[in-house]
Design a protein around this nucleic acid. Structure first.
Length: 945
RNA sequence: GCCCGGGUGGUGGAAUUGGUAUACACGCAAGACUUAAAAUUUUGUGUCGCAAGACAUGCGGGUUCGACUCCCGCCCCGGGCACCA
């Protein structure tokens, strides 16, 4: 047979598929499946081998779905607005439109050469006016519903480029482009109220089939946090300070307050502030400091006291000072905090610096203490440890006081579980056993060890620890009235009220804990309250609610998520369709005048004033007000590149519609996206933004599902050979064109799927790729040993196993092991020297999604008529997978000593009989009677002597 | 600092309701074919040991008849977030 000529085959079939429109989605058919990959930004560098990884993966899924009879929509387009194109245009004087055209042409050809089964008839481009007309239209809907607004925002300002930068464009506090200094500057910016959707974006995640990492990423970004809003009165004033805290239980420890420098109260109080000059100076300085700078020096906190004003702590009515400091963020919570230095790291650092009172209001449990240095464990000789056991029903505690040598204690505690030697230990064991609750041992033991280590490691600082060992299981014991006997054996066990614990601690131990705070660190974490009036002795969790009630606070939920800054002072983006009229203020461009097209300009550089280059085009800027007809100015800011990608998946349903962004019926037919794969880096931006837009459109009844994507997965990066990112400057970029030219698209595809777990970052290796090429070479050669007369039987079990494995692995994105199982199948065929036509045919079908060209060619060669990609996906027969004969491993005392061939079902005894026939086993068992026998059917037998 | 991944041969990696660790591939070594080379192919390939066997999944403990897998503590690498009260 001819040689495997990948170039000829791949070109041939790509042409055929295109002519036959093999991958076209059908609007009229039912049983849809919408498979989506993130549309690329068509950069000038061309396609990256990294692109091929997710495209191939989802292509495999799409092809499998088609074979399973689904009506598959698998589209592609271009997210073509963006900075690199604009920068390239500035450098070369080419129009961004032309740059984009060149780049997309190149990308399209490259993607086609990989043989991805996109439906090219639905190709879209965000920079096409017929597309961005609808991006602008959606913006107008947001505006009309009050979700788009213009606000003064402090933004990063590059002094050299004279341009506003997004946070992502600031690297290490310097401008990404020129490396220049960054300043903060107030600018009017269009904003989108994504925060109004924060709770839904957070809560609805629950129902979605996103990988856990993605859910966690989104949740962290939204930053939902439940706490209390507590109001502090200002002495001698009717003004108040609202604070947000997650730790109302520490309210008695609030010894001062801090406002963000931007807080409005500073101005309102200016008459009472005696050091106003100093305060204003501080505000000015911190306003200039960029966010990066502010967050950079987390250690050296700065602030200024508002002299002349005092706040009242509502818990104890004490007067406390008020500070402004830029470690408090204006945009989070209420922009003001109650500072509890004893129990908050940041407040602690600040209090240390400015000599403020640090008042401890709770004692913590050892389980909250981490990192005890283990090497000190042996040095300890003397300390005190209190173990208390809590009785859930009575709310009482048992105190176990251990005095004397800690070495003895730790041995007792640890040994109490392990060795059970002393009477005390025996008693503990009995409690555990009588409690008879599974895992009781593990829970209590590990905590005791932690406690012991804590004591050990802190011995030198003369500390004490209160060990809170959770023993809910003791409850049973007490309720049965059995506790008295144990009281006797545990000679120090007595049941006391919670308050007793504190009494036991004072005064010596409190002083010790006090000492820790004064000199070292804040005690974060929860515990038992002290110095808190009538709340003393309560546990943190329970005290929270009661304290909030006492001071008239309320429970509130806050989010880290901020509104979306939607303005860019750039040329290459969608113009924001708004007009500013002196009379009417901001007026939306009437919908029938959309799109607001980008005008031709000669220069794309931003202007000196930091406005978009569009500001210099008077024809564009000067318009009539749509409302009053008077003179007005068009908005010259453009949208960020996230705009077009926030709804593109909807356009694929109806890509050429001129009347609406997509026909409702078609949307209902195709949406939601069944499976969306993309980069991890888009978890917090693109994915969140597009969910937000989609939820908004859902609220407007323009789409029919509240979520755009049912399932979201992500792929790992492909790194350069030897690790690190591929980059032009390092010269380690692998060009996919070359790879395809040398070994073929099918080899590239198989290799990228085989190289490692899909979601994991992995280094490229040209050496390893030859394995995939050899595999395809062998697939090709096996064609010669296809034997029509031979029946399938000899390889039947393996064939069905392979069908099962490949089918399941594709769904789980375990492409590497799917390929491996295909390799195993080919190895087996070669060993046999012959293969039936039927088995080979099925094998080709399994391989087809991975290597669509070579399989199509071989399919034709074995005389199949229609395309392999139209053939129904093979199913497996479970009964054929279970082989009748199998190997049973024989262990003696858990060690492998031999194996035997089993047949049919074997009982434990039969298996033992067979095992004892093996000479080597006899040697190990020494003819002794087995004490115990473990038999895992058809797998393993373990003889314990 | 916090969160999420990950740590298994010379290399990429398999194996998790606990049940024969190292599948598959690369590389390497020896052999076959060849005038020769490439390609192909056969065999071997965790470490130590002549062998029997012992030891090996980042480190230290634990649970178990049996642990890459579960529990406790720690170390290292990658990524993300970072004064979020």
């Amino acid at each position: 047979m001819k040689k495997y000529d990948h170039k000829r085959i791949e070109r041939k079939w790509q042409d055929v598929w295109e002519k036959k429109e093999l991958y076209k989605a059908d609007d009229k058919k039912s049983d849809k499946e919408y498979i989506l990959v993130e549309f690329p930004y068509p950069s000038g560098d061309g396609l990256h081998v990294g692109h091929a990884r997710p495209y191939t993966a989802m292509d495999i899924v799409a092809r499998k779905r088609r074979a399973e009879g689904k009506n598959v929509l698998f589209p592609i387009g271009w997210d073509a607005f963006g900075l690199p194109t604009e920068n390239y245009a500035i450098k070369t004087g080419t129009h961004p439109k032309d740059v984009t055209k060149n780049n997309t042409d190149k990308f399209r050809a490259q993607i086609k050469s990989i043989g991805i089964s996109f439906d090219w008839s639905r190709e879209i481009n965000t920079t096409d006016p017929t597309y961005y007309k609808w991006t602008q239209w959606i913006f107008l809907q947001l505006y009309k519903k009050g979700l788009a607004y213009k606000a003064k925002m402090s933004i990063n300002w590059c002094l050299t480029c004279k341009i506003g930068l997004a946070n992502e464009e600031v690297i290490d506090g310097k401008c990404e482009r020129c490396g220049g200094e960054i300043d903060m500057r107030e600018k009017e910016q269009w904003m989108l109220s994504i925060t109004k959707y924060a709770d839904r974006l957070h809560d609805d995640l629950e129902e979605l089939d996103y990988t856990e990492a993605i859910k966690v990423g989104q949740r962290n970004w939204i930053g939902k946090s439940e706490g209390a809003e507590i109001t502090f009165k200002i002495k001698g004033s009717d003004k108040e300070i609202k604070t947000f805290t997650t730790r109302p239980d520490t309210l008695f420890g609030a010894t001062y307050m801090v406002l963000a420098p931007e807080h409005s109260l500073v101005k309102e109080l200016k008459d009472s502030i005696t050091n106003l000059d100093e305060v204003l100076r501080y505000i000015e300085v911190s306003a200039k400091r960029s966010e990066i700078e502010r967050t950079d020096d987390t250690k050296g906190k700065t602030g200024v006291e508002l002299k002349g004003v005092k706040a009242i702590n509502p818990a104890n009515n004490e007067e406390i000072p008020i500070y402004i400091a830029d470690y408090v963020m204006a945009h989070y919570g209420t922009g003001a905090i109650m500072a509890v230095p004893a129990h908050d790291e940041r407040d602690f650092a600040f209090a240390k610096k400015y000599n403020l009172e640090i008042r401890q209001v709770l004692v913590t449990c050892a389980e909250d203490v981490t990192n005890p240095p283990q090497e000190r464990f042996d040095e300890v000789s003397r300390d005190m440890i209190i173990v208390h056991l809590r009785n859930k029903s009575t709310g009482k505690f048992a105190l176990l006081d251990w005095h004397g040598s800690l070495e003895g204690i730790t041995t007792a505690i640890m040994g109490g579980i392990e060795k059970r030697q002393t009477p005390e230990e025996a008693a503990l064991t009995e409690i555990e056993e009588e409690a008879a609750i599974p895992n009781a041992k593990i829970v209590s033991r590990s905590r005791w060890i932690t406690a012991a280590k804590y004591c050990a490691s802190h011995k030198k600082q003369n500390r004490c620890a209160i060990v809170h060992a959770f023993m809910a299981e003791v409850d049973d014991l007490i309720s049965q009235g059995k506790i008295n006997e144990h009281e006797q054996s545990l000679h120090t066990l007595t049941w006391v009220d919670k308050k007793e614990i504190l009494n036991r601690l004072t005064p010596y131990h409190q002083r010790q804990v006090w000492h820790i705070l004064q000199n070292e660190e804040a005690l974060i974490g929860t515990g038992f309250l002290m110095n808190s009036g009538k709340f003393d002795g309560m546990e943190s969790e329970g005290a929270k609610e009661k304290i909030i009630k006492k001071v008239g606070g309320k429970m509130v939920t806050t989010y880290k998520l901020r509104d979306w800054v939607f303005s860019r002072q750039r040329y290459w983006g969608e113009p924001i369709p708004m007009i500013h009229c002196k009379v009417d203020g901001w007026v939306p461009v009437p919908e029938d005048q959309l799109p607001v097209e980008l005008p031709e300009v000669e220069k794309y550089e931003p202007t000196d004033s930091g406005e978009s280059p569009l500001a210099n085009i008077s024809d564009f800027v000067n318009v009539k007000c749509p409302k009053c007809g008077g003179r007005a100015r068009r908005e010259t800011d453009t949208m960020p590149n996230w705009a077009g990608s926030s709804w593109y998946f909807l356009r694929y349903a109806d890509p050429t519609n001129a009347k609406e962004f997509a026909n409702k019926k078609l949307l209902k037919e195709w949406m939601p996206v069944d499976w969306y794969n993309g980069g991890m880096e888009h978890t917090t931006l693109h994915l969140l933004y597009s969910r937000f837009w989609h939820k908004f459109l859902y609220d407007q009844k323009l789409v029919s599902s509240s979520e755009p994507y049912k399932k979201r997965t992500s792929h790992g990066l492909i790194l350069a050979e030897g690790g690190g990112k591929m980059s032009k400057s390092k010269g380690n970029v692998v060009n996919p064109d070359e790879v395809i030219d040398n070994v073929g698209a099918d080899t590239l595809r198989v290799y990228e799927m085989f190289m490692g777990p899909f979601e994991q970052a992995i280094s490229w290796s040209t050496d390893n790729m030859v394995g995939s090429r050899r595999f395809l070479d062998r697939v090709w050669r096996v064609m010669d040993i296809v034997d029509d007369k031979r029946d399938v039987e000899s390889i039947d079990a393996l064939l069905h196993k392979t069908i099962k494995k490949v089918s399941e692995d594709v769904e789980a994105m375990k492409f590497n092991t799917a390929v491996s199982s295909l390799m195993i199948f080919i190895n087996e065929i070669e060993k046999e020297g012959r293969v039936s036509r039927g088995a080979y045919r099925t094998f080709l079908q399994l391989l087809a999604p991975f290597a669509p060209h070579i399989t199509e060619e071989l399919w034709e060669n074995i005389g199949e008529g229609e395309s392999i990609h139209k053939a129904p996906w093979p199913s497996y027969d479970a009964s054929k997978i279970n082989e009748n004969t199998y190997t049973v491993a024989v262990q003696v005392n858990g060690k492998l000593r031999g194996e035997f061939e089993g047949e049919g079902g074997l009982t434990k005894e039969q298996a033992l009989e067979k095992a004892l026939l093996i000479p080597n086993i006899l040697k190990w068992t020494n003819s002794k009677k087995p004490k115990r026998l473990i038999y895992v059917p058809k797998k393993l037998i373990n003889i314990v002597i």
